[in-house]
């Protein structure tokens, strides 16, 4: 074999082929799947945020954990997850699955329009507990038919189910997996990122009315990336997140003060 230093034919190629040999060695080291392909990601479309994430976006496949900053911010975290789901669904066809543990809120069909989501592309599953949520997500991961999977947990994401989800997600065309859990401190698990979402005053339109929702998003943990803290605004018509410009916000506030 080419790795054998005593192989005369390999040696005869000379030093010019050492680069190829190195590449072959790297390919062998990277595992049986051949050379590592770049992992598919969902870019958030914000250079300021995407540079913090490995690969330039949320990795598709491994679970992403989203937790509210305070228990009362649960809906803000849910909204952020659905915004990411809407962003992904706007790019590829298919439907999203929301598997909810008992007591977790299910979305109101008419309220999804405010986030730019088509209710017809949302499937719901009312699970009997966190364990059933994990089983449902795993079954959906194996089926590979849905591009977005969202699990609403009553407890935390323990290491073992997180790892199982990660293993089930390996392979071609992985979906975006989002795990929402309550505000308590999380244990280490297989999640690729952990977000903390808090509500923030919404954007104002030019008449001072409530416009696009805004959230304060803190990237608490990010494997192979950097954490960060941003104020994000969701534009439901364009299906993109924005960093609100401080100037515009000040002007609106000034307008309100005058009125």
């Amino acid at each position: 074999m080419g790795l054998d230093p005593a192989d005369e034919t390999e040696r005869a190629r000379g030093p010019g082929s050492s680069r190829e040999r190195l590449a072959a060695l790297r390919a062998r080291l990277s595992g049986p799947g051949g050379p590592a392909v770049p992992h598919p990601v969902l870019p958030l479309g914000l250079p300021g945020v995407d540079t913090h994430l490995p690969g330039g976006g949320l990795a598709l496949g491994p679970p992403h954990e989203i937790a509210p900053a305070e228990p009362a911010d649960g809906v803000a975290a849910f909204g952020f997850a659905l915004a990411l789901c809407g962003r992904h669904l706007a790019r590829i066809p298919g439907a999203a699955l929301i598997a909810a543990a008992p007591g977790q809120p299910l979305p109101h069909g008419h309220g999804l329009a405010g986030l730019g989501l088509d209710p017809a592309r949302l499937l719901l599953l009312e699970a009997g507990g966190d364990a059933e949520v994990f089983r449902a997500l795993e079954a959906a991961l194996h089926a590979r038919t849905l591009p977005v999977l969202i699990g609403l947990l009553g407890g935390g994401l323990p290491l073992k189910p997180g790892r199982r989800l990660q293993l089930a997600a390996e392979g071609a065309s992985p979906p975006l997996v989002l795990i929402l859990r309550p505000a308590e401190a999380g244990l280490p698990n297989g999640a690729a990122t952990r977000w903390r979402i808090a509500s923030a005053p919404a954007a104002r339109d030019r008449f001072g009315g409530l416009d696009n929702p805004r959230w304060r998003a803190r990237l608490e943990r990010c494997r192979n990336g950097r954490g960060g803290d941003w104020l994000l605004e969701w534009d439901h018509a364009a299906h993109r997140l924005r960093l609100p410009e401080p100037l515009a916000r000040d002007a609106a506030a000034a307008g309100r003060a005058r009125a």
Binding site: A95, A120, L123, L124, A136, R144, T145
Partner: peptide, 21 residues
Amino acid sequence: GIGFLADALAQRLGRPLLCLG
């Protein structure tokens, strides 16, 4: 594929897949 997933969840968990109307 969704049909098969719905059947699989119905067998595995005994719960139907829902959608909003």
